[in-house]
Amino acid sequence: MEYFLQQLINGITLGSIYGLIAIGYTMVYGIIGMINFAHGDIFMIGAFMALISFLLVVSLGVTSVPLALMLVLFFSMLLTAAWGWTLERVAYRPLRASFRLAPLITAIGMSIVLQNFVQLTQDARVKPLPPVITGGHILTDTGTFSVSLSNIQIVIILTTTLLMAAFSFIIAKTSLGRQQRACEQDSTMAALLGVNVDRVISLTFVMGASLAAVAGLMYLLYYGVIDFFIGFVAGIKAFTAAVLGGIGSLPGAMLGGLIIGLIEVFWAGYFSTEYKDVAAFSILAIVLIFFPSGLLGKPEIEKV
């Protein structure tokens, strides 16, 4: 039981990170019907931007940990958002009127470009970050096994919950969110009503990239090391999460992220570490047989 509880906590933590990345896939798919395969690498860039921001903040002499974290969060979101915006602007927008596969191929190309760029400029070795958020709480202790919830896990789960609530609110209740949903449902009609569709698409990339930056920061804090390749694996997991939850559905992306995180951790905890990825993808295949549009991907669901 204690072991189960511990895995549950670890799974929710990992699932939160996947969920944050998955939202970027699902929002972009919702609005332009394209899988942004470079989104995993935007997450990777986000982790590097967070690392660079940390160095910057420390060199500026900020010693208070909460303040440093807030600054790092702000800078990495800002910088990564700029990457996301540029990616759409230079690589995807010119191809929007092209045949369906063109943007997909470009996305894969951009993914390779981003990986190689970071590998060249940051070199291929892993980059460590000393633990920033330390300590934790022992929840139960049976003598043989103790269940702990670390402070970093609390930070990750709280931040994710907060951000997801904020994003759900933006999509459901604000004018920007309505414009995004309108573009997703009928972009020509949205334009006829005065929506600047290009701008809304840009903002969607910016939002997705900001969330990926948060995920990158959380990953950096949680694992303490990053390299240019983390975006590939995490990206595929998050993409799987988005499809599992129903691509295009915001709650689906969150749910899918959570499920993939839990499957991965439980599989590794109870069976073997080696096949944890296979487990996640197998579950995806099984779910798609019974729910071809994902768990929450019904046509009447709120998309974007």
């Binding site: 004018s175 309505r178 309108a182 449902q185 009928d186 020509t188 009609m189 669901i301 998309k303």
Partner: peptide, 14 residues
């Protein structure tokens, strides 16, 4: 070309 997954009010807001 009504936005099908938006409410009547949301369509009017658009």
């Amino acid at each position: 070309r009504i936005f099908p997954r938006m409410t009547v009010m949301e369509n009017l807001q658009m």
